[in-house]
């Protein structure tokens, strides 16, 4: 096996274990910390895929900004105690079985599928910023601009939901 394959296995292991702990841990602050580990592992995957810029942005935005926001909300709402109400086990088992079946069928389907090298993957500089910028502003110009409508509507919605009503 190549070194990159070992790194891939290690990163995947870390990502899956910490994602599991994120869901299973009852303390919200611990969950958030596990989420950070998951994000770092995924950033490592991006590096393996030659997506350096994406890896850096992922760490800055998710592991940095979003995480601080999460922690801030948890601290502010004083959720750091173990106040999760005890839920029944049947829905948990049903959810686990359903998700497990989905995983099983997807892996069974992907397993044995002939996977071709995509043209984009042959270029090792694909993830560098100047390539990304060129693609974004040439081929993907319209989606790039249109996504501003998406963000604008999300912002308007956030303001609308948090605005005080005057009667």
């Amino acid at each position: 096996m190549l070194l990159s394959q070992y790194i891939f296995l290690f990163l995947s292991f870390v990502a899956i274990i910490s994602a599991l702990m994120l869901v299973l841990d009852k303390n919200p602050v611990h969950s958030v910390l596990y989420l950070i580990i998951t994000f770092f592992a995924i950033a490592g995957h991006y590096l393996l895929l030659n997506a350096q810029f994406l890896a850096v942005v992922h760490i800055i935005v998710y592991a940095g900004a979003i995480m601080v926001l999460f922690l801030y909300v948890i601290m502010m709402l004083n959720l750091n105690k173990d106040i999760e109400p005890h839920k029944k086990n049947i829905p948990k088992v049903a959810a686990a079985v359903a998700a497990g079946l989905l995983l099983l069928s997807l892996t069974a389907l992907v397993n044995g599928a002939e996977v071709n090298m995509l043209p984009a993957a042959r270029n090792s500089n694909i993830g560098l910023m100047d390539n990304l910028g060129k693609t974004l502003f040439k081929e993907y110009m319209l989606p790039f601009e249109i996504s501003s409508i998406l963000f604008l509507s999300a912002m308007v919605g956030a303001v609308f939901l948090s605005k005080k009503e005057i009667h």
Partner: peptide
């Protein structure tokens, strides 16, 4: 990519409007 953006631009305002 426009399909995905279309679905999201359609959905996100409606999520908010449903709770308006």
């Amino acid at each position: 990519s426009m399909l995905f953006l279309g679905v999201e631009i359609l959905s996100i305002p409606v999520y908010i409007l449903a709770g308006s």
